[in-house]
Design a protein around this nucleic acid. Structure first.
Length: 486
RNA sequence: GCCUCGGUAGCUCAGCGGUAGAGCAGGUGACUCUUAAUCACUUGGUCCAAGGUUCAAAUCCUUGCCGGGGCACCA
C-alpha cells in the first residue's frame, strides 16, 4: 500500500511495535466480560469487573490516564495509573483511539461523580489501523454515513439507537402475531412470475436451469396459496424488491410484513393493525406519543410534534375525505371542472391522467400528505385497487383500507378476493397492461377454494420511521443501496 | 429520468480569481481525578475528475462521477 497517509503509517508502525513486544495485535479471545451498561447499573464500590470495548477517548497525564471504552450498550470510563498497572502502564503510550482493549479492575466513583473502572490488568485485543471520526463532531457526510455504516455506528449514538430500536420493533411485531396464533412462514423470494403487486421487478438468471427469475415484489400470491392449503392465520416478514425510483421513502429492497387471516374481513384486519402498532409502540418506545423531537439548541432545526397513536383511530371513507378537502360537490361536477378546481387548490395534474387519477392526486396531496395521526382510509374506488373485493352495498368501491401515519401509507388491508373467475378477469386486464404472464398456478389454487380472508401488509421500514422519528428510510436500513463509487 | 444544492486535511468546516486555512484528531514535551482535559511546540492537502477561459483557477465556464433535497415512478 503506497501513498499511505501519515496517520495510517503511524498506526501500522505501532502495530509492528506491538509485535516486537510479543503482543498479537489481532489476538485471542477475552471471554467473561460484562457490558458497559451492566458495569454501571450494578455498581458497588470496589466490585471487581471484567470489561472490553473500543477505546473512544483518552486523557493522558504523565502517570495516570482516564479513557472511555464503548460497546453497543454505551460508554464506560476506565482509569489507569502507574501503581495499579505496573509494567502494563506503558501500554497506554501504544494505544490509539479506535483500538479494542480488555481489562479487569474494580469500580469506584471519581471526584466528579463518574462511575469508573480502576484497572488492575489491561489487554490489547485489536489494533485499529484507521482513525475514527471525531467523537465531538461525528460524521456529517451523509454519503459516508450510509456507505460506511460501521463507522457511523461507532460515532453516532443516534444511529445505534434507531437500529437497535428497529431490531426490537421487528421482534415485538413477530411476537404479537405469534401470540395471536399466526404461523410465520417463508415463501419464495425468487419467482418465475412476479405477482401480488403493481411494480416493476428485478430480473435475475438461474444458470443451471437456464431460465430468468424475478425477485419478488410481494409474497401475497404464495401466502394465499397457504390459505388454500388449509392454514387459517399466516404471516411473513421479509424483503420485497421493486425496480423503481429511490427516495427518502423508498429503497429498492424493503421489509414487508404480510398477514392473512381466514374468515376475517378488512375491518377485522384494521383492528389487528391498530392493535399491533399500539402494542409495539408501548413495549418498545414506552409511549403512544412517538417520533417527536425538540428544536435544536441553535434553532436551525425546528421542533417536530410527536404523532399521537392513542386509539381508537378514525376510519373514514375515501370519498368523504376527498369531499372535505376539495368541495362537497367534487363528485357531481364534470371531469373538466375537477381539473380546474385542482389548479385553484394548488394540486398539479398532468394532462394524461384519467379522471379517477385526478381525484387521487387531490387525495394524496390534500389528505394523505397532511395527515399526521393515524387515519384508516376505507372504501377506496375500485379503479385504485383492482384486485380487492367489491363492497356488497356499493360495487363502485372495494372493501379495503389504507392506514396513513405521518403523511405516508404505512399499511394497506383488504377483504381478499377469492372468486377465481373475477380474479382471472382482473389479473388478465392487469397483465395485458404490463405485458406480464398470468400466474396460472395461483388461479388454479383459487379454483380449489380459498376461504374468505382478510389480508394486510405493513411496511416495516416506514413503521420504524414513524416510531423512531427517522426522516429518511436510509436511516432505518443498515446498508441502504447506493451506487458504487467509481 | 428531470429540477436544485453540495463534494477543500483523518473528522467538522472557512476561503469563492492573486502564496491552501482554522478547530479537533495526530506527533514531541510537561502534568497522578480527567471527561470536548489543560499548556507549549509541531506534522499533515491529486481543493471529486477531465477539459476550457485567464498573466494567474479550490474560486469562473463546460462535461462527467457520487451524494442530499424536490418532482416523476412506487409502498
Amino acid at each position: 500500500m503506497e501513498d499511505e497517509s501519515e496517520l495510517l503509517a503511524l498506526r501500522r508502525a505501532r502495530l509492528e511495535t506491538w509485535r516486537g513486544m510479543g503482543i498479537d495485535p489481532f489476538g485471542g479471545p477475552f471471554p467473561g466480560t460484562e457490558t458497559c451498561r451492566q458495569a454501571i447499573e450494578t455498581y458497588a464500590d470496589e466490585r471487581a469487573v471484567r470489561v472490553a470495548g473500543r477505546l473512544i477517548s483518552k486523557r493522558e497525564m504523565c502517570k495516570n490516564v482516564f479513557a472511555h471504552i464503548q460497546d453497543e450498550t454505551g460508554k464506560l470510563q476506565v482509569y489507569a495509573q502507574v501503581q495499579g498497572l505496573g509494567d502494563k502502564f506503558a501500554l497506554w503510550k501504544l494505544l490509539d483511539i479506535g483500538d479494542f482493549i480488555g481489562g479487569e479492575g474494580t469500580l469506584f466513583t471519581t471526584k466528579t461523580g463518574e462511575k469508573t473502572v480502576r484497572l488492575s490488568d489491561l489487554r490489547i485485543l485489536t489494533k485499529s489501523l484507521r482513525p475514527i471520526p471525531s467523537q465531538w463532531y461525528g460524521l456529517a457526510d451523509v454519503e459516508q454515513r450510509y456507505r460506511q455504516r460501521y463507522v457511523d455506528l461507532i460515532v453516532s449514538e443516534e444511529a445505534r439507537r434507531v437500529l437497535l430500536l428497529r431490531s426490537r420493533i421487528v421482534g415485538e411485531v413477530r411476537r404479537f402475531f405469534e401470540e395471536r396464533g399466526f404461523i410465520e412462514v417463508e415463501t419464495p423470494m425468487m419467482q418465475t412470475i412476479a405477482g401480488g403487486a403493481a411494480a416493476r421487478p428485478f430480473v435475475t438468471r438461474h444458470n443451471a436451469l437456464g431460465i430468468d427469475l424475478y425477485m419478488r415484489i410481494a409474497p401475497e400470491l404464495y401466502l394465499k396459496r397457504l390459505l388454500v392449503g388449509g392454514f387459517t392465520k399466516v404471516f411473513e416478514i421479509n424483503r420485497n424488491f421493486r425496480n423503481e425510483g429511490v427516495s427518502r421513502r423508498h429503497n429498492p429492497e424493503f421489509t414487508m410484513l404480510e398477514a392473512y387471516w381466514a374468515y376475517a374481513d378488512f375491518e377485522a384486519m384494521a383492528q389487528l393493525v391498530e392493535d399491533v402498532i399500539i402494542t409495539v409502540a408501548q413495549k418498545v418506545m414506552g409511549t403512544l406519543k412517538v417520533g417527536g423531537r425538540p428544536a435544536s439548541e441553535d434553532g436551525s432545526v425546528a421542533a417536530v410534534e410527536p404523532i399521537d397513536l392513542t386509539p381508537p383511530w378514525p376510519r373514514k371513507p375515501y370519498r368523504d375525505l376527498v369531499r372535505a378537502a376539495a368541495g362537497e360537490d367534487w363528485f357531481t361536477i364534470s371531469p373538466a371542472e375537477r381539473r380546474e378546481r385542482c389548479a385553484k387548490l394548488g394540486v398539479e395534474v398532468s394532462p394524461d391522467l384519467e379522471d379517477f387519477e385526478v381525484t387521487n392526486q387531490v387525495f394524496e396531496k390534500l389528505v394523505e400528505a397532511k395527515t399526521r395521526n393515524p387515519l384508516f382510509v376505507t372504501h377506496l374506488p375500485k379503479e385504485l385497487v383492482p384486485l380487492a373485493k367489491q363492497n356488497s352495498a356499493d360495487p363502485s368501491v372495494v372493501d379495503v383500507f389504507e392506514l396513513i401515519i405521518g403523511g405516508q401509507e404505512v399499511s394497506p388491508g383488504y377483504s381478499e378476493l377469492n372468486d377465481p373467475v373475477a380474479q382471472r378477469q382482473r389479473l388478465t386486464e392487469q397483465a395485458g397492461e404490463e405485458q406480464q404472464k398470468l400466474d396460472e398456478d395461483f388461479l388454479a389454487a383459487l379454483e380449489y377454494g380459498m376461504p374468505p380472508a382478510g389480508g394486510i401488509g405493513i411496511g416495516i421500514d416506514r413503521l420504524v420511521m414513524t416510531l423512531t422519528g427517522a426522516e429518511s428510510i436510509r436511516d432505518v436500513i443498515l446498508f441502504p443501496l447506493l451506487k458504487p463509487k467509481a
